[in-house]
């Protein structure tokens, strides 16, 4: 393999050279074929992955007659969407979900900025213990404590309120650790310079740390809003009225209000109404979403 190509014997032993050339070409063809096969297979997986969504979209857009009949056609209609939107309080559900995810995010941003700064830049008594205590929330998430949190909420008299749905998520250990990591990378000299100029600690936090770590805030916001948008079990238990139900609970109730079989078009349309915003945002800001969820991998 290491002989130089223009070695004298190469010219003399032609058959050998030809064979090695053919071998090389075969090798190349084989590897290219494998690469093509690999690409093809992974594309097929991609198409397979899209099928469930396409199926729902197809069902939601087809007139009822077209679904039942076995004759192929390209007919389509928006009727199901209009019917669903007018027939069930989805507009109200939308407002509720927006209020809940927005409210949670707003409070979280405040609590986590303060706590992250303490963990990143201050030395204080009990830091290690507190750090471990905060970790507990990541290990045992609120999803699991629904049953006991229900009782806490009851003691506060906050059952069936939007505030009640939001309450358990106001502190986010995940967000604190994410932001703490980012704060640690802010050059300390900036803070020192600001101190010399007479800035207060909170002023420094607001004018130096927050702007410099904005991408992390965006990442956290994406993960947090997606989480609230998808949350189901907790709001299901807490809410009992149209005024407070988020989209997920509304969708579940809507889907179950039908007898099986006949109303697939409506359920599909309702499902699309619920998933559309996140999917559209994901389509538009794919990179941002993927990198945000990558951050969610730090888990503290």
């Amino acid at each position: 393999m290491t002989e130089p190509i223009d070695a004298p014997w190469h010219n003399r032993s032609e058959p050998r050279l030809m064979r090695s050339e053919r071998e090389l070409r075969n090798e190349r063809i084989r590897s290219q074929a494998l690469k093509a096969l690999w690409t093809f297979m992974m594309m097929v997986v991609g198409v397979l992955w899209l099928i469930p969504f396409v199926w729902v979209l197809w069902t939601a857009l087809r007139p009822k007659e077209a679904i039942i009949s076995n004759v192929w056609s390209w007919q389509w209609t928006f009727d199901h969407f209009i019917k669903v939107w007018n027939g069930a309080p989805f507009a109200q559900y939308y407002m509720n979900t927006l209020t809940i995810s927005g409210g949670v995010l707003l409070v979280q941003l405040v609590t986590l900025t303060l706590a992250a700064y303490a963990f990143a830049r201050l030395r204080f008594f009990g830091k290690e213990v507190l750090f471990m205590l905060f970790l507990v929330q990541i290990m045992v998430p609120a999803d699991v404590l629904i049953f006991s949190n229900y009782h806490v909420l009851k003691e506060f008299g906050l059952l069936d309120t939007k505030l009640g749905i939001m309450f358990p998520y106001f502190a986010s250990a995940f967000g604190i650790f994410l932001l703490r990591q980012a704060f640690k990378q802010v050059p300390y000299e900036l803070e020192e310079a600001a101190v010399v100029e007479g800035s207060s600690r909170l002023g420094i936090l607001w004018r130096i740390y927050v702007p410099l770590t904005r991408p992390i805030y965006v990442s956290f916001a994406v993960v947090s809003v997606s989480y609230q948008w998808n949350n189901f079990l907790w709001p299901l238990i807490v809410t009992n009225s149209v005024e407070n139900r988020p989209l997920t609970v509304g969708l579940a109730i809507f889907a179950q209000s039908f007898e099986t079989g006949a109303q697939w078009s409506e359920v599909s349309a309702a499902t699309l109404i619920v998933v559309a915003p996140l999917l559209v945002f994901f389509l538009l800001f794919q990179r941002q979403f993927i990198s945000s969820f990558m951050h969610s991998g730090i888990k503290g």
């Binding site: 405040v110 303490a118 507190l130 949190n149 358990p168 502190a171 250990a173």
Partner: peptide, 21 residues
Amino acid sequence: FAWALLLPSLIFLGLFTYYPM
């Protein structure tokens, strides 16, 4: 100062993580 910064988070964690557990 540090504890004051952590207090808001601690209150919510206490109410909805430690106490329920």
